[in-house]
C-alpha cells in the first residue's frame, strides 16, 4: 500500500470516527415509541454517552432520523420532506414494529414500514422496544458508519430528489 492509500485509510478512519461519535438525531417521535425514545435520552439510559443527546428540532442541523412510531399515509409526505431537508451524510433508524413494517396496524391509513418511503439503515423491532434496544440500534449504526468507505458513500436517490 502506497503512502497515499495509507493516508486515505487513516483519514477515512478519522472521519468515520468523528461522524459516528456525534450523530445528532432529529426529533421525529410519532407515537408510543416516542416515549421510549425520550426515556433513552434521560438519566437512566443516557444516550449522551454515545454523543447523541442533542436532539435537533430542525432537520438542517441533524444527521440521524429516528422514526419512532407509526407512519400514516397522511404523515408520509411530511416525513419525506424532513428526510430530504437533512444534509448528507444522513442515516435512518426505524424504531419499533410500526416503523419497521407497519406493526399490528394492517389498515387503510398506515404505511407498512417506513422503508417504503426512505432508505433505512437499522431496524429495531419491538412494541415498544426497550430504551436499551435503541441504544443497541445506535451502536449497530455506529459500527456501520465505521465501515463506510470515504468518498464513495452510496447515496440512494429518491424520485424527484436533488442529490447534492
Amino acid at each position: 500500500m502506497g503512502i497515499e492509500d495509507k493516508a486515505m485509510a487513516s483519514l477515512q478512519e478519522v472521519i468515520n470516527w468523528a461522524r459516528k461519535n456525534s450523530v445528532w438525531p432529529v426529533t421525529f417521535g410519532l407515537a408510543c415509541c416516542a416515549l421510549e425514545m425520550m426515556v433513552a435520552s434521560s438519566a437512566t439510559y443516557d444516550i449522551a454517552r454515545f454523543g447523541a443527546e442533542v436532539f435537533r428540532p430542525s432537520p438542517r442541523q441533524a444527521d440521524l432520523m429516528i422514526v419512532a412510531g407509526t407512519v400514516t399515509k397522511k404523515m408520509a409526505p411530511m416525513l419525506k420532506r424532513i428526510y430530504e431537508q437533512m444534509p448528507e451524510p444522513k442515516w435512518v433508524i426505524a424504531y419499533g414494529a410500526c416503523a419497521c413494517s407497519g406493526g399490528i396496524f394492517r389498515t387503510y391509513n398506515v404505511v407498512q414500514g417506513v422503508d417504503q418511503i426512505v432508505p433505512v439503515d437499522v431496524y429495531v423491532p419491538g412494541c415498544p422496544p426497550r430504551p436499551e434496544g435503541l441504544l443497541k440500534g445506535l451502536m449497530e449504526l455506529q459500527a456501520k458508519i465505521a465501515r463506510e468507505p470515504l468518498g464513495m458513500r452510496k447515496i440512494v436517490s429518491l424520485p424527484g430528489e436533488n442529490n447534492g
Binding site: K73, A76, P77, K80, R106, T107, Y108, N109, V111, Q112, Q116, I117, P159
Partner: peptide, 12 residues
C-alpha cells in the same frame, strides 16, 4: 380494512 390499493407498493 386494508383499504383499496393495499397490494401496490406505497409511494408518496
Amino acid at each position: 380494512l386494508e383499504g383499496h390499493d393495499f397490494a401496490k407498493p406505497f409511494s408518496v
